[in-house]
Design a protein around this nucleic acid. Structure first.
Length: 509
RNA sequence: GGUCCGUUCAUCUAAGGGUUAGGAUUCAAGAUUUUCAUUCUUGCCAUAGGGGUUCGAAUCCCCUACGGACUGCCA
């Protein structure tokens, strides 16, 4: 058992885009596999054709690729345990369902969905909850309550049926969850879940257990919402006689909405003020578009880093991790038990940290398209120099424009507050003098400009603040930006002088 | 309603019987930047409540409260 090859799977159903909780589940599976030198598989659980959403599977694959969580096996990724789409494994499941009927762990249920709906509605009006279970099964229409002859007749007649699990009576099922510890359920309280649907497809429970067994999955790492069905799955392994090779279970805490109640869900879409999806998603039915982390300008490394620290911690004070670093130190023991609220502010901070770590040349490559879109073309070394100056005030690549547009185009308006505070009657004359001074400078380089400027200022006896601030206003349109002389240098001599003259003109009017 | 899971600053979390309960984000103040942002320093802020066990409990046990998940021929 301990020598068993580690194999884990991420098993989403293609009912829409993956949300960040799903990505985190994939991440933890990936990290666990890589940490132990095991395999990470992707399996598409598309057993409910009525909920199938076109494009969802592609979306899932693209999301994993963006994050760098590349499956070792899966649809389109190869592997010896395929197919990895449950719809393509359809034929397989009926035999397993039959096996359970034969050995008495399951039974045919002929009840119509309408009838069950009615029973549920009735129970509800009485303030009760209907459940198809050991307490009610004998009064319903199934191969346990009907005579053998009747069952055979119905089967022969082609009546539709579902196959339900026959939950044992009053049996304690205890399982050691790798995150939660020992968890015990009593089968008395559990219902008879449908394993095989009347449409010929298995339900999640059957397909999941059968495939995990066939694919030799060693650890099931999934969201906490699956904890209540763990006893059913345990019992299914028992019913099939697969207990010896049964995987270990680990139920991850949920990611909660930042405010309000409940877990984060796909339906939260765009309403929260931050993306819940890794990638932008366009709903094929409504045409509605939901934003994604990628399109919002997050680095995938930052996105993953945020997710890694949501419900897990390294036990040290380190917060920034690469994927390979995470693989090295990740362990299920350090996953927390309680659900966590996602904090968009901290997500921003993570992205900022990654942006700051990247060399200016790399950021320039990412910023280039923004400039191209605006029809701006500058030599690379120039862009890199500019980015070096303003990178540390940005959280996202897109912020570079916001914080440094004046490097690329002259200001068209000037900040009123700064004008009121700094633009005095003597200012135009002073600016004019500075422009003249600049015209005489031969080595157009920050240090040299500063030198000339200082000497001139001292000679004139002018107040530095009352000249530098208006000068800054002329060049950038406000009271922001990096070192003034660096700006002059990067702008170039002619442009600097032009901007000063232009500002004086504008102020006159 | 029932079953199961959970509960340390506003948020993410550390501390696996003995610490002034630590860090990060946010927020606030100061310093630096002759501007702004950054950066740095400092500060504010927490063991849900009640009972036990123990010399000693955030840590172990019980109860209460609160939160969450599940309760479909969905996954």
């Amino acid at each position: 058992m301990t020598e068993r090859k580690i194999r884990v799977r991420f098993a989403p159903s293609p009912t829409g885009p993956l949300h960040m909780g799903g990505v985190r589940t994939a991440l933890f599976n990936y990290l666990f596999a890589k940490h132990h030198g095991g395999d990470f598989l992707l399996r598409i659980e598309d057993t409910d054709q009525s909920r199938y959403v076109p494009g969802a599977e592609e979306y899932i694959v693209e999301s994993l690729k963006w994050c760098g969580l590349i499956p070792d096996e899966g649809p389109g990724f190869g592997g010896n345990y395929g197919p990895y789409r449950q719809s393509e494994r359809k034929e397989l499941y009926a035999g397993y369902a039959q096996q359970l009927i034969d050995n008495g762990w399951a039974y045919y249920a002929f009840d119509t969905p309408e009838n069950l709906d009615r029973l549920r509605a009735e129970a509800e009006t009485d303030g009760q909850v209907f459940s198809y279970s050991q307490h009610t099964r004998m009064s319903l229409c199934n191969s346990l309550s009907l005579s053998v002859a009747e069952v055979e007749a119905r089967l022969k007649n082609g009546d539709t049926y579902a196959i339900r699990f026959k939950m044992p009576e009053a049996l304690e099922v205890t399982e050691e969850d790798m995150i939660r510890g020992s968890v015990t359920f009593n089968t008395r309280e559990l219902d008879d879940k449908v394993l095989f649907k009347s449409d010929g497809m298995p339900t999640y429970h059957l397909a999941n257990v059968v495939d995990d067994h066939l694919m030799e999955i060693s650890h099931v790492i999934r969201g906490e919402e699956w904890l209540p069905s763990m006893p059913l799955h345990i019992l299914l392994y028992r019913a099939f006689g697969w207990e010896k090779s049964k995987p270990r279970f680990a139920h991850l805490p949920l990611i909660l909405k930042p405010q309000g109640k409940g877990k984060l869900s796909k339906r939260d879409g765009d309403k929260l003020g931050f993306p819940v999806f890794p990638l932008q998603w366009k709903d094929p039915e409504t045409g509605e578009t939901s934003r994604g982390y990628r399109e919002d300008g997050y680095f995938s490394e930052a996105f993953l880093n945020i997710l890694a620290l949501l419900g897990w911690n390294p036990g040290t004070e380190q917060e920034i991790f690469s994927l390979s670093e995470l693989s090295e130190i990740f362990s299920l023991e350090r996953v927390v038990k309680s659900g966590s609220r996602f904090d968009p502010e901290k997500a921003r901070w993570f992205n900022r940290s990654y942006l700051q770590m990247k060399p200016a040349a790399e950021v320039a490559l990412l910023f280039r398209p923004v400039l191209s879109e605006k029809g701006i073309d500058l030599p690379d070394f120039k862009i890199v120099s500019i980015i070096e100056e303003i990178k540390d005030r940005c959280d996202f690549v897109a912020d570079i424009w916001e914080h440094g547009y004046y490097f690329f185009e002259a200001p068209t308006e000037y900040d009123e507050k700064t004008i009121a505070k700094r633009w005095k009657t003597e200012t135009p004359e002073q600016m004019d003098a500075i422009a003249d001074l600049f015209g005489t400078i031969e080595t157009w380089e920050a240090l040299s400009i500063k030198d000339h400027f200082s000497t001139y200022m001292n000679h004139k006896g002018w107040n530095f603040g009352m000249v530098m601030n208006p000068l800054r206003l002329c060049l950038v349109g406000g009271n922001m930006g990096p070192d003034l002389f660096r700006i002059c240098e990067l702008l170039g001599k002619d442009e600097t002088i032009n901007r000063i003259r232009k500002a004086i003109e504008r102020k006159k009017v």
